Computed example of a mutant assay.
Amino acid sequence: MTDEIYAKDAYVKTFKGKVTSLEGNGIILDKTAFHPRGGGLESDTGEIISEGNHYRVLEVKRVDGKIIHVLDRIEGLAINAEVEGVIDWERRYRMMRLHTASHIIASIAYTKYNALITGGNITPEYAKDDFDLENKDLLPKIVEEANQIANKSIPVKVYFLSRSEAMKIPGVVKLAEKMPPDVQVWRIVEIEGVDLQADGGPHVANTKEIGTIEIIKVENRGKGKKRLYYTVKP
């Protein structure tokens, strides 16, 4: 199993590891700070460096529990090769800001309007979330409140709980039609006094880092289906 560095410290930009397996045009490492695609987030990209050779990390994905780093080429790499991983930090950090913003928005939608997220995706440029809301005019109000919360400089904490303890928390899973994770230890992301969710992705350490959440557009996708596109600005 790969040690998932990003799950414990989202601010690790470089790391050293070892190749444990070659998988087609990708490699598996004993540890990684690259976040694989999942949980609505696109994957990290960056570089793998080994013996002076630079390999571009095009995509990172989880397949059958294995984290595969898809490279532009694998010639020169072998099992047990020592490598350095370098995260494309600008890309990662924007997704961290958007990800934490999405948690604040989801929390307001849930606590005030009992609305769950029915789908979504986060890219470095923008995020989109679908809500089971009847009135799309509520979304600008939610974003306005989310900005007020972000500006309060609230710490964002990451910790781990047993499944039984996590299941006692109301609203710990805010995705509609998603079963609670079938694992015994859950990773919890807590925005103090605002939100607490089971979540596997990288976040900023303080809401002040988000910047300003700006709406790109709001769409009516049908009865009880509203989509919000948004980005973050410094």
Rank of each mutant, 00 (worst) to 15 (best):
T212Q: 14
V63Q: 11
K157M: 10
L196T: 15
D137E: 12
L71F: 08
A146R: 03
E75D: 15
G85E: 07
A109L: 09
G224H: 07
V63N: 08
K174W: 10
G76A: 08
E192S: 14
H203G: 03
I74F: 05
E214L: 05
E23V: 15
V60S: 04
V143M: 09
V156R: 05
G46P: 00
V183S: 10
E23W: 09
Q148W: 08
P124M: 00
G171M: 05
S50C: 14
A176N: 13
K174L: 14
I191F: 04
G119Q: 03
H203M: 03
T231P: 06
T14K: 15
A198D: 09
I149T: 09
E144N: 13
K223G: 10
R73Y: 10
K225T: 08
S21C: 09
I48C: 02
L98E: 02
I117S: 08
K217E: 04
V83R: 00
I104H: 02
I68R: 02
R92A: 00
G211F: 06
V204P: 00
A10Q: 03
G193L: 03
P180Y: 00
G24Y: 06
M179S: 15
E145S: 12
K217W: 08
K61F: 09
A115V: 10
R221E: 11
G171V: 09
D132Y: 04
A33I: 00
G52T: 04
I169A: 05
L161E: 13
A150F: 07
T14Q: 14
P170M: 00
D64H: 14
T111Y: 14
P234I: 03
E219F: 10
Q184S: 15
E165A: 11
A127P: 07
H99D: 01
K128W: 15
V173N: 00
T100S: 05
K225A: 14
I188S: 06
S21G: 13
N25L: 10
K61D: 12
T100M: 04
